[in-house]
Amino acid sequence: MLQETCRVIRLERLSADTWHLFLAAPGITARVHAGQFVMAAVGAGYDPLLRRPFSVHFAEGDDLILYFRVVGKGTEMLASLHPGDRLSLLGPLGKGFKLTEGLAILVGGGIGIAPLLLLAKELADGNNPAAAIILAGRTKAEVTPLAASFQPWTKNLIFATDDGSFGIRGRADEAVASLPPMPGAVVYTCGPQPMLRAIAHFCRDHKMKCQVSVESAMACGMGACLGCARPAARPAEGGGYVHVCLDGPVFDAEALPWD
C-alpha cells in the first residue's frame, strides 16, 4: 500500500458519462490484484475533501486504468484532467477476488464492470480464461465501447441492455440465468445492489460459488475511519458489521445478507 503521485497519460470518453482514465502508476500497478481499489485525491483544494474509491479496471506494465462514471463534483474533476496532470492514488487497497478453480463467469452491471477486466486477464494468465463474461448496462452506447478490451480474454462475451438495444434485453442477473448449466462454476460479480442480490440468490439456489464486489462511501480506504461498515451475514462477537475497505470490497456472497 502506498500513496503514489501518478501521471495522467490520457482520458478516453466512452459514452455520455463514462470514461477510461490511463495513469502511469508503476508502484501500485506492480502490487495490485483484481478486485482491489485505489483512493484518488481529486483536486488540490478542500472541496472535494476526501479521496474517492475506484476499483482498478486494468493494470499492465506501468499503466493503470480506471473506468468511471461522472456522478458528481469529484468525478467531473477527474474527467477534466489533462495528459501530464498529477493525481495522487492511495493503494492498492482491500481484498480482491480470490481466483478459484472451476469455470469462471464474470458478471458486471453498469460501472460495476470496472473490476472485471483485470480479473479476466488474471484468470487467463492462470490458464482458466473466463467461460463467460456478461457486461450489462442501460443502453448499447454504454456497453459497446467496452467490447474491444474484454474480447481478448474470453470466447463468450455476452451483452445485456435494459432497453434491449444491444445483446440480451434485461438485467445482468437475467443474462446469468439464461446461461447453459455449468456445474461447479464460480460467479464473480460487481454492480448495483439489486443485481448483486439477484445473482447471489441465483447462485445460492444453484449451488454455485459467488464472489461479489460491493461499494460504499468511505473516508480513508484503509480501516481507520470505519465509515464503510456493512451488516455481516454472521456477525462476529461484539461486531455486527464488516468493513468494505478491509474485509472487502470483494466478499463471498454468503458473507453478506441479501434479503
Partner: peptide, 19 residues
C-alpha cells in the same frame, strides 16, 4: 466492544465530512 451505528455512517459535505 461496540458494533457501532448502522450505515451509511459518513457523508462528505463542502470542505468537511459528517460521521
Amino acid at each position: 466492544p461496540r458494533p457501532g451505528n448502522p450505515p451509511p455512517r459518513i457523508v462528505e459535505i463542502a470542505c468537511g465530512m459528517l460521521n
